[in-house]
Design a protein around this nucleic acid. Structure first.
Lengths: 129, 129
DNA sequence: TCAATAATTCAACATTTATTGAGATATAAA
DNA sequence: TTTATATCTCAATAAATGTTGAATTATTGA
């Protein structure tokens, strides 16, 4: 994640419809949702409007797309989201632990508890699904 | 951090000069820097331009200001930055541990190592989603 | 009080961004 | 092949954003 990519990602996330789309796709999982389904969830936004925003998100690297029959499915680009947070935090925590600490605490949403003593990586994956 | 505040923060961070200012202030520490000093660091940007961007950042809640003599000092709003990441991650990790895990790993920038003995207990404490 | 310093405010302008509606493209089914 | 479905592309327009330069406010020191 370099500065320009971060700028593009922040710009993409600064628009209400797009932020809603990203949140929707993040919770939708890796399979994603079709453009039409997303449009319905966005208060029935027009198809051209959806295309515009989905293209912006894809351009910013925050979502990926694939065709499946007549539909095009969009999915959250999880690594890009993680990379963006990494970028932001890398800039935030230089010498200021008070910034990181509460974030790490917040990330204990049950899915990412890092444990240095836990050798088996997959075992430390405490899923609550 | 609600949606509108997050949108404002993302918008503020999506502009190159402002992103540079935030990064500069974050590394500058709690005392912050004067508007003039920041302007010099921004390739000698004009004072009105600096005022514009600093006002945007303050409006977005990402920096705070205080007058000291003739100068006005701007500081990073660390809690707001942490809150933004929290917001983004709260949206990102619902049911998808693979998103959070690498971020938490990246946050081991040396300043926010979570107490290993508390991992089991606190991590199982699920925040409301 | 007057001059110097530090920063802000404002109006004008240029640029960028978002929405709309019409039409084009791709796929699937009749 | 024809029709329907799903989505994209494009041009026009509206709205928001960033830069500039001049004028203004606040503070300090002579």
């Amino acid at each position: 994640m370099d500065v320009n990519r971060a700028l593009a990602a922040f710009a993409a996330l600064s628009q209400e419809t797009r932020l809603r789309i990203v949140r929707l796709l993040v919770t939708a999982g890796p399979e994603g949702l079709s453009a039409g389904t997303i449009g319905e969830a966005m208060d029935g936004a027009s198809s051209s409007r959806m295309s515009f925003h989905l293209a912006q998100l894809e351009q910013a690297g925050l979502v990926t797309s694939r065709r499946e029959g007549r539909s095009i499915f969009y999915s959250a680009a999880y690594p890009a989201l993680a990379g963006l947070v990494e970028f932001l935090m890398r800039d935030c925590c230089q010498g200021h632990p008070e910034v990181c600490t509460p974030v790490v605490a917040a990330l204990s949403c049950g899915c990412a508890a890092p444990d240095p003593s836990a050798v088996g990586a997959s075992a430390s994956r405490k899923t609550t699904m």
